[in-house]
Computed example of a mutant assay.
Amino acid sequence: MNSEAIARMIYGAAIKLDAEDFKGFMRQCGDDFRYSIRSYSPELGQEMVWLEHDRKGMQDLFAMLPKHVRMTGRFKRHVSVYSVDRDDDRHARAHSSVLLVHTDMEGNSKLFAAGQYEDLIDTAGDTPRILERVVRLETRNLGPGVHVPV
Rank of each mutant, 00 (worst) to 15 (best):
G57V: 10
H53R: 09
P42R: 00
R34T: 10
G30W: 00
G30C: 00
M64E: 15
P66K: 10
M58P: 10
D60E: 08
D32H: 03
P42C: 00
F75T: 07
Y40L: 05
H53T: 06
R55M: 05
S39T: 09
Q46K: 13
P66Q: 11
R55P: 03
V79M: 05
Y35P: 02
M71K: 15
D54M: 02
C29D: 06
H53V: 07
D32P: 00
V49P: 13
P42G: 00
A63N: 10
M58G: 13
D32T: 03
G57M: 11
M58F: 12
Q59I: 13
I37C: 11
A63R: 10
G30V: 00
L51P: 01
M58Y: 06
G73E: 09
R74H: 09
R34A: 11
L61I: 10
F33S: 03
F33T: 01
M26K: 06
L65H: 13
Y40V: 06
G57R: 07
L44F: 11
V69K: 09
P66S: 09
D32R: 01
D54H: 04
M48D: 04
Y40F: 13
R77S: 08
I37H: 04
G30D: 05
M71T: 15
V79Y: 07
M71P: 06
E52M: 08
D32N: 04
R77E: 10
D31E: 10
P42F: 03
H68I: 11
E43M: 08
K76Y: 15
G30L: 00
G57L: 10
M64D: 14
D32Q: 04
F33Y: 07
R34N: 08
G45E: 11
F33R: 00
V69P: 00
Y40S: 04
S39M: 07
T72Q: 14
D32V: 01
R70W: 03
Q59Y: 06
H68A: 14
S39E: 07
M26I: 11
F75M: 12
F75G: 03
K76S: 13
H78Q: 04
